[in-house]
């Protein structure tokens, strides 16, 4: 499906594109290559930067190494070559300054929702009572007060996603990693959670590195979209999404600028897949 030879090298200079954002550099991935056994790299010579408070989305076909970039940032994976720097320090072991929401359901099934959300605080030696209070307060802001005492098996998909987001945010990380968090949800719930995520990001000022293969989701949420594709995966294009901080998903769909952005992303995505267009 992906042919490596003919896709034109239209890589933009990452540093130029990220000049759009104003905050100081938070995450800097430089010239990394990753290989999972075998002879081929999954990622090769890829560089990426996320600035404080910036919402960056990695867009690309599945299997192009988007999630791998999140794992590099979280420190659960080491690059074969190149460096990952977070907040000025090289990431050499598990990075505890990020929050990570993965595709999987990673709630601990033997803890209640409140205990799950409070868990990071307990692991950081916050006293039990304080952890519980803070977890309940956060759950309230996510509309989950009534579910606090339930076990994960008793929660719906949407409640679980909200809970996982709350758990990733409770220790106030500076960067939130999200790996296709809304992929398995129905469109209505998905739209609702997207709006909620925008709200949380605005309120907390947390930077986000978000992975999706959904073009519209990328345009809707991000300040900047990085299109990744090819084998091995590399940056195909970077697109600044100049839609401003206040966005209403309902009206945005009919906005000309939104359509233009969609078209640009569509073209980049096609190149990322290796189609000639």
């Amino acid at each position: 499906m992906w042919t490596t030879s003919e896709s034109p090298m239209t890589e933009l200079n990452p540093s130029r594109a990220s000049a759009v954002a104003s905050g100081p550099s938070l995450l800097r991935i430089e010239d990394v290559a990753v290989r999972f056994g075998g002879a081929r790299d999954v990622l090769a010579r890829l560089s990426l930067e996320v600035r404080a408070g910036e919402f960056v989305t990695l867009l690309g076909p599945s299997g192009c190494g988007k999630s791998t970039l999140l794992n590099l940032t979280a420190g659960t994976l080491r690059p074969r070559q190149g460096s990952v720097t977070f907040d000025g320090k090289p990431v050499t072991s598990v990075n505890r300054n990020v929050g990570y929401v993965t595709q999987e359901d990673t709630m601990l099934p033997w803890l209640t929702l409140a205990a799950n959300v409070g868990l990071p605080l307990r692991l950081r030696r916050v006293p039990r009572v304080e952890a519980q209070e803070r977890a309940l307060a956060l759950l309230t802001s996510f509309g989950l007060t009534n579910a606090a005492a339930l076990y994960p098996a008793q929660l719906s998909g949407g409640m679980k996603k909200r809970g996982l987001l709350a758990r990733a945010l409770i220790y106030q990380p500076r960067l939130l990693l999200m790996d296709e968090p809304f992929a398995a949800l129905d469109s209505q719930l998905r739209a609702q959670l997207q709006t909620e995520l925008r709200r949380v990001v605005m309120e907390t000022g947390v930077a986000v590195l978000f992975v999706t293969h959904d073009l519209e989701e990328a345009a809707l949420l991000s300040d900047r979209v990085v299109v990744i594709g090819g084998t091995p995966g590399r940056v195909i294009a970077e697109v600044a999404i100049g839609l401003g901080p206040e966005r209403d998903a309902e009206t945005l769909r009919f906005d000309d600028r939104f359509r233009d952005i969609g078209r640009t992303l569509q073209q980049s995505l096609r190149r990322a897949r290796g189609d000639n267009a």
């Binding site: 659960t76 505890r96 929050g99 999987e104 868990l119 692991l123 950081r124 220790y171």
Partner: peptide
């Protein structure tokens, strides 16, 4: 035990 669970707890601050 799922590695995803272990990774999550490590990132969340677990020893």
């Amino acid at each position: 035990v799922s590695q995803a669970l272990i990774d999550q707890v490590m990132i969340a601050g677990g020893s």
